[in-house]
């Protein structure tokens, strides 16, 4: 029961946070904001180039290739792991979703390795200066989540039907018993912590990266 209460508290917090962020962004059409005069591309081309920048992390590739490798692998594997997890949340996913789940399975293996690799790359520069406490916490959190996920997938397999019934029950207010696994509870609770701690760059960085491309092309 306590896990369910925690889940609803987290969801309410996320809802309020989301609404407040949307409100802030909508309000931020400040009269005090400075007008930027920037030359643009023809629309389709800038969308395409910016999209490539976002997908392949071109900016990071340009300045730190070893780190880029770890970050890109992590983000892409994380994306597929999340997509694969949607099968626990949604009913009626198309049959081709099984391919996504399959990629997500490999993503789940790549994820902890890429995170450890990121830590090693950062530590090889200067541990104290180049790892912020927030960043370190997030990486450790993700490592724990991914390891517990791998444990449930390959060592102590969970009954997917139980998991799905529990998770969908929360969203449909048709509460179902918590699957009987300490590892699952651990994984699930850490997932909630991640939701609370999810960095805002997940939502905004694609926009700023796309905008940066326009800026780079600015010439007098």
């Amino acid at each position: 029961m306590i896990v369910i209460v925690i889940t609803y508290i987290v969801l309410i917090i996320l809802y309020i946070k989301g609404v407040m962020n949307v409100f802030l962004l909508c309000r931020a059409d400040s009269k005090e904001s400075i007008y930027l005069r920037e030359k643009g591309y023809p629309a389709p081309l800038i969308y395409l180039i910016s999209f490539i920048d976002v997908i392949f992390f071109r900016r990071l590739f340009r300045i730190n290739k070893p780190l880029w490798l770890g970050e890109w692998l992590f983000h892409i594997s994380f994306l597929f792991v999340i997509l694969a997890h949607l099968r626990f949340l949604l009913i009626g996913l198309p049959s081709w979703w099984s391919h996504i789940v399959c990629i997500g399975k490999y993503g789940g293996i790549v994820m902890p390795f890429s995170l450890v690799y990121i830590l090693i790359v950062r530590a090889s520069i200067d541990w104290r200066r180049y790892i912020s406490p927030g960043n370190l916490f997030l990486i450790l959190l993700l490592i724990l989540i991914s390891l517990s996920g791998l444990f449930m997938r390959y060592i102590n397999r969970m009954d997917i039907i139980d998991v799905k019934a529990f998770v969908t029950g929360i969203f449909t207010f048709n509460l179902q018993p918590l699957p009987d696994s300490r590892v699952f509870v651990f994984h699930y609770l850490l997932g909630l912590v991640l939701l609370l701690y999810l960095p805002s760059h997940v939502m905004t960085a694609p926009i700023t990266v796309a905008e940066a491309r326009r800026r780079e092309e600015f010439r007098i």
Binding site: S30, S33, I125, Y130, P199, I207
Partner: peptide
Amino acid sequence: FTEGLGRKELAEIKACTQCRECLR
């Protein structure tokens, strides 16, 4: 603190990943 910022600047403040590449 957001009064003097446009959407672009607000998105930028939220976009920092704290990766600290800039420190180098």
